[in-house]
Design a binder for these strands. Structure first.
Length: 270
DNA sequence: ACCGGAGCCTGTTAGC
DNA sequence: TGCTAACAGGCTCCGG
């Protein structure tokens, strides 16, 4: 489900209720949710730790805990996080819960059960392979050009490769390629310097738009508070198959690339 | 190095 | 209307 803007929206919503809280314990009814360490160890190491900060890296949420512990959560396709009072009715799709010292709960709801929880001393264990943050100040068009050098990949799957660039998923890849005027099927080695600059600007633009609009509620995504985001009202091509392109008026096409639905305007994207 | 396919899960949607 | 198959915003593993 969530891509960079959706994960960023969760992080921003969770900071206020969670920062400074101490985790009292953890519960889990789907062992595969816990990537590492085994749940009994995670429970022991997390209990009594204070949440000192919450940040995002790519599509991961990173909770910095006291005593040099880091809790990392990936929401994958259907994950959702919320902080609720302890007397909130149970939800059958909540598989992992962190109890808080104020009686509240951090709930990890995940109908498809693809999500994962990690507790590590060194975050690089999990985050190390990730490519650069596309919205970081020090991520430049030159850096993108440098990363493209020597690679021959189909453009769309390359953008989804988290080791190439972190946080871009299916929606924002399609949207970025639209604004860059680039066919998703283009080979990365064929891009001119001008096209690379356009791709760089488009990636930053659509991701920032997604954050400003607090995510895209197209399938099941809702914000931590259950409200919808607004990015679904601003997509140019994603899931608009057959509808008119806002730029040229022609129909948006859908193809499958790397096993993923891909939407583009054959007139505007070359 | 890169690509395609299968697998992980379950709810929703499209099509007959 | 009801059933079935395809599909879903992610990612990993495997073989070619």
């Amino acid at each position: 489900m969530p891509e960079l803007p959706e994960v960023e929206t969760f992080v921003r919503a969770l900071r206020r209720p969670l920062t400074g809280r101490t985790i009292a314990g953890a519960r889990n009814d789907w062992p595969r949710h816990i990537a590492t360490p085994p749940f009994d160890q995670l429970c022991e190491r997390v209990s009594g730790r204070r949440i000192e900060g919450i940040n995002r890296r790519g599509k991961y949420l990173v909770f910095s805990l006291s005593d040099d512990e880091t809790l990392i959560i990936h929401l994958k396709m259907s994950g959702h996080l919320s902080v609720v009072a302890g007397d909130t009715p149970p939800d059958p799709y909540v598989h992992t819960v962190f109890d808080l010292d104020d009686g509240g709960e951090l709930r990890f709801r995940d109908p498809r059960k693809f999500g994962r929880v990690y507790l590590v001393h060194d975050p690089a264990e999990v985050l190390g392979p990730l490519g650069p943050e596309p919205l970081a100040e020090d991520f430049t068009a030159d850096q993108l050009a440098g990363r493209l050098k020597g690679r021959k990949r189909v453009l769309k799957p390359l953008l989804l490769d988290q080791t190439f660039i972190a946080g871009v998923g299916n929606i924002y890849a399609d949207e970025a390629l639209f604004y860059a005027g680039l066919r998703p099927t283009r080979n990365s080695a064929s891009l001119s310097p001008v096209e690379i600059a356009a791709l760089y600007a488009s990636l930053r633009k659509v991701l920032q738009m997604g954050i400003d609009r607090e995510g895209a509620s197209i399938n099941s995504y809702v914000k931590a508070d259950g409200e919808m985001g607004d990015m679904q009202n601003a997509v140019a091509v994603f899931r608009r198959t057959g509808q008119t392109c806002y730029h040229c008026g022609g129909p948006v096409e859908r193809i499958v690339l790397g096993g993923r639905s891909t939407h583009f305007c054959p007139t505007c994207q070359r």
